[in-house]
Design a protein around this nucleic acid. Structure first.
Lengths: 164, 164
DNA sequence: TTGCATGCAAATCCTTTGCATTCCT
DNA sequence: AGGAATGCAAAGGATTTGCATGCAA
């Protein structure tokens, strides 16, 4: 996977939750507000795009903490629903700050050539998930949906870096 | 991930392509028809459910070949579009025999507790993908969509084995 | 003070690869 | 024969974990 180059303007509005609000969530969950945690949340706030653990670790700069700490914290934050994990099929987890409740729920359109990511506002028809859940007797049904294709800049290129 | 227990009846009709037809596809692609390949295709034909490399390897039984060979072949078959890869978010690739053309395209409903998998016939509204592609100037757009929930048998249990 | 978090290093797990050998075509 | 496929072992890369130490509450 290449390094992230330039990011396109987002199609969905940014949720620029203030850092204090984020740390408050930690406090309410009886989690300690440590330097690595604040730094990681800052990074996620700055780049509202799916980032890998390694990318987050790199972006920490002089606030650097151990990579294992990044992994541990993203797991924790995921458990708290403060971040959402995305899977682009290349075997690497990516995270984004999650909006409160369902508000943050969204999907992506990923260029399989340059890995450019577009955030989408579209989602499944509301009743589809519910119908599927009922028909098969499942509860607490959610879904993961991502789109893959070739962006206009990459049209003509023939190699693929994502989804090997 | 637990071992696969009992599988529910499929919601979509099985594509029981005869083995000869599958090996013919290999022949047409100038691929050699080896014992491991036939055995792997046989396994996939028998279990039309997403299987991991390891599960396939196990299911080979006395037709056993090296695990690396399983990996290599599934990659090859994926490239030929003879199998489809699915990703349930637990960091392990799963494969299924693919129907010809788009005919095999489908999604899953996965129980996050027991990993039971239901094959779905539902798919995205046809025009949604096209609209998204056009709006963002992407071509060759495809999607990955999977549903996750808790099946009726597992209601009441509170541990989760999938999507840690 | 007290246990949650962190750093560091080692361990796991999935997947890929190098190389000599085997075997389809 | 000749190149593709396989077996075996080792390497890679992502992620997790054990343990002693540090630090927020």
């Amino acid at each position: 996977m290449k390094t992230c180059c330039d990011h396109p303007p987002h199609s969905r509005r940014l949720i620029q939750t203030p850092l204090v609000e984020l740390t408050d969530q930690l406090r309410r969950s009886a989690r300690k507000i440590t330097a690595p945690r604040q730094a990681i949340l800052e990074v996620l706030r700055r780049h509202q795009h799916p980032l890998t653990n390694k990318e987050i670790h790199l972006a920490l700069g002089k606030e650097e903490c151990d990579l294992a700490t990044v992994y541990r914290n993203l797991r924790t934050l995921e458990g708290m629903r403060m971040v959402a994990r995305f899977d682009f099929g290349d075997g690497v987890a990516r995270y984004e700050l999650a909006g409160a409740g369902d508000e943050g729920h969204h999907h992506h359109l990923v260029c399989t050539h340059c890995t450019r990511v577009v955030e989408l506002t579209e989602c499944l028809p509301r009743q589809m998930e519910q119908e599927i859940a009922e028909r098969h007797g499942f509860s607490q049904v959610t879904h993961r949906l991502e789109f893959f294709g070739v962006c206009n800049r990459c049209r003509g290129s023939h190699t693929t870096s994502l989804v090997k």
